[in-house]
């Protein structure tokens, strides 16, 4: 029998999100390897009881659970926690039977540094432990906004024509290729029913550019967005000042 995977896409931003872009990149690789995938966008799923039940049935039948979620204030958003609680309750009610099942998680942070995701990943690990799911590891993604805009394969194609000495190779091409390779290796291990070795995931533990460069880019982004809305002079308002 084919292995089965349940993918939980946990961003409210839908297709515009890094959780969607990176998560579905992984599911496409799983499908190439013959794994059958059921995907749930939890912000939609949790609105409808029948869809929640479908999600639970899918998890019950799955060998792998894949979570791709944003990082909100150092941990998962409300809806991701709520989804974990529903799954935990379903285990306790016997709606999900215990069997060999792996959890792999992708945590998507806005800040540049990967390590902002560390606590969120530890929380996913505890969720797995509480439900006797095997923790297979997780990807700590920094500067996730880039992946929200450009899915990994497209981004690499876009960067390809740049001249060899272009500095963008160092800050974009190299880290994205590395991420791609870690993702592919992770998928290989998971397909074989293995956890992803720590040494593989640790390859993502680096900061690809100076913090100041990222800050400048980010701050310009806010200014551009505000200019379009005509709110530039309001950005530092203090509406709730005492």
């Amino acid at each position: 029998m084919n292995k089965q995977l349940t993918f939980l896409m946990c961003s409210p931003r839908g297709e515009k999100s890094a959780s969607h872009s990176i998560g579905f990149y992984l599911t496409s690789l799983f499908e190439e390897k013959g794994i059958s995938v059921n995907s749930f966008s939890v912000y939609q799923t949790l609105k409808i009881q029948e869809e929640i039940e479908e999600m639970i049935i899918s998890i019950n039948e799955s060998d792998i659970i894949l979570i791709s979620s944003p990082l909100y204030i150092d941990q998962a958003p409300y809806m991701t926690i709520k989804t974990m609680n529903i799954i935990t309750d379903s285990f306790q009610q016997g709606k999900i039977s215990k069997k060999e099942r792996h959890l792999f998680a992708i945590s998507n942070a806005g800040y540049l540094e990967y390590y902002h995701n560390n606590i969120a990943l530890k929380i996913y690990e505890q969720f797995a432990k509480e439900n006797e799911i095997i923790w297979a590891g997780g990807l700590p993604i920094g500067a996730a906004g880039t992946h929200a805009q450009y899915p990994i394969p497209e981004f690499l194609k876009m960067l390809e024509p740049l001249p060899k000495e272009d500095p963008r190779h160092e800050i974009y091409t190299k880290p994205t290729k590395l991420l791609d390779s870690v993702i592919r290796t992770s998928v290989d291990h998971l397909c074989k029913g293995e956890i992803v070795p720590k040494e593989e995931l640790q390859k993502l533990e680096f900061v690809p550019m100076p913090l100041e460069a990222y800050i400048e880019g980010g701050n310009n982004g806010w200014l551009e967005a505000a200019e379009k809305l005509g709110t530039t002079d309001k950005l530092r308002d203090k509406p709730y000042e005492r």
Binding site: A76, I119, Q126
Partner: peptide, 21 residues
């Protein structure tokens, strides 16, 4: 919850990032 905050608390906190610039 699993080492983190409850969903109920998180629901409110997620809505508070406007307190930052």
């Amino acid at each position: 919850n699993y080492g983190g905050y409850s969903a109920e608390l998180k629901k409110a906190l997620d809505r508070s990032i406007g307190l930052l610039s």
